[in-house]
Design a protein around this nucleic acid. Sequence first.
DNA 1: GAACCCCTGTCTACGGTGTACACATTGGGT
DNA 2: ACCCAATGTGTACACCGTAGACAGGGGTTC
Lengths: 285, 285
Amino acid sequence: MQLTDPERSTELLWRAGARRGLSLERIVRAAVELADAEDLAAVSMRSLAERLGFTTMALYRHVRGKAELVALMRDEVMGGWDSAADPSAAGGWRAELEAWARRGLALHQRHPWLAESEDARHVPGPNAVAVFERALGAVADTGLPPAQVVAAVNLLGGFVDSAARQSAAALRARRRTGVSDEEWWRGRDSLFARLDRYPTLSRLYREGAYEAPPDPFDFGLQRVLDGIDTLIRDEKRDENVCRVCGAPVSAATSGRPRDYCSRACQQRAYRARKGGGGSGGGPRP
Amino acid sequence: MQLTDPERSTELLWRAGARRGLSLERIVRAAVELADAEDLAAVSMRSLAERLGFTTMALYRHVRGKAELVALMRDEVMGGWDSAADPSAAGGWRAELEAWARRGLALHQRHPWLAESEDARHVPGPNAVAVFERALGAVADTGLPPAQVVAAVNLLGGFVDSAARQSAAALRARRRTGVSDEEWWRGRDSLFARLDRYPTLSRLYREGAYEAPPDPFDFGLQRVLDGIDTLIRDEKRDENVCRVCGAPVSAATSGRPRDYCSRACQQRAYRARKGGGGSGGGPRP
DNA sequence: GAACCCCTGTCTACGGTGTACACATTGGGT
DNA sequence: ACCCAATGTGTACACCGTAGACAGGGGTTC
């Protein structure tokens, strides 16, 4: 179960109008429907083929394997991330980024299998890149060095993923067992009985830490945004930070303060100004 | 592949000295070794049994199924989270929490399959709870309301997980294909060629955003800690926040400012002072 | 018109997974 | 000495992803 040929993936994901093709479209759409209705585990090549009225192996004429199918499913669905987005996008970076994250969570809730389907080295499809681009746009003009803009967006994306994964796992468990989260934990008395030897935990528990818990997504989102906020503020306050990579810059002993941490970063900025591209690792949305 | 009987899981995970039992210990240890050396996918009941010199079904005399085995593996390994921790633990909540997170990442790097093995409604074992307890202890005395202490620790734990998952996925891909991340991305020219229509992304790329990227874990860790930090500061500054759940409290029109957002939370605090327990959802480490 | 070929779909088969169930063995308590 | 429960074994089932050989059919070329 691996994508052996990234070149092919790139072509598939990025092919032009042909996306409204004959049958691949139908396969991917059916797979998404099936995964939405049941589970990612319910999407087997056999069940999917049966649902479409074909033989199992017929799918392999359009898709190289299961991994590729999942990649196509992912990008198909990624188109819905920004679907409900306000294109005007006013309100400053924080409001924009918050809305972006909330739309991401909503998408994950519409397609709970998304979080499960993560795997490294997916070729990002056009929809995924569009999502990434939009988030970058929100933070691009905050004065943060480019590398930190990307890092901040990646951090927030990772947070959304992580939160979505937890809520998806809870949903999956609820579907399977028919028991809600609260019910299940309430039944764990034999576990709680053993938690006395953990003083802090039981003290917090006694003080009601678990009675009116804040929504984990809202809570985490505000913390992460706060973290990015202080980064931006710090950036604005003192400028002795490299304009390219954001590393601290040793204060110049005399004369004008330095803009770059090293000769290498200075060179990078120069090349960027000249409009040439660079080399090195690519984007990882 | 599910834990049908949480009661049994609780007993297994929490049984006393019996942990140095006969064969279950050996099974779990061998499974961990196998997963460390290869992959979680390499731990099949057949391969594991063969490695131990028994039949496949022999394992089922000691373990109810694969899901239970994985749960036991998880808790076995969780014992190593705080193994290299300084018990004195000075340095304030931030240093403590940062060290905690770094130990977590290190653990995940020693056992890259940990991130894969996540599933909801694991009965937390004693080791997992100890890890949780330690993190709670770091933030417990910051003046944060109990619910927020728990939420903060959960947030940081989720972050560690998320970061570990990404690095584990990258490692897995490298192992499988023998190609490093940088190499792989460098070969994706046909992808980069299509990124021109995304102005922000390509501008940031030209400006060197991908040439000297900060370590994603370090970056994210500082942001999250900053976020928690501002929460603590805000908490200290103005006290018009509920002492139990942290929700904002409407300012009293006259007299002494309110401590609780509602009669319910006031009651909870009273019960906590009296030493009684509460009801409701349990801890989710 | 005939021959060709490629594209698509089908069929069979292989090696892998988790695990249910019936049977053999064995060791300890009565 | 007996019995029983615990432990290990063997076989079998229902899945999974997919490799490989084969059949039909439509468009292109002679």
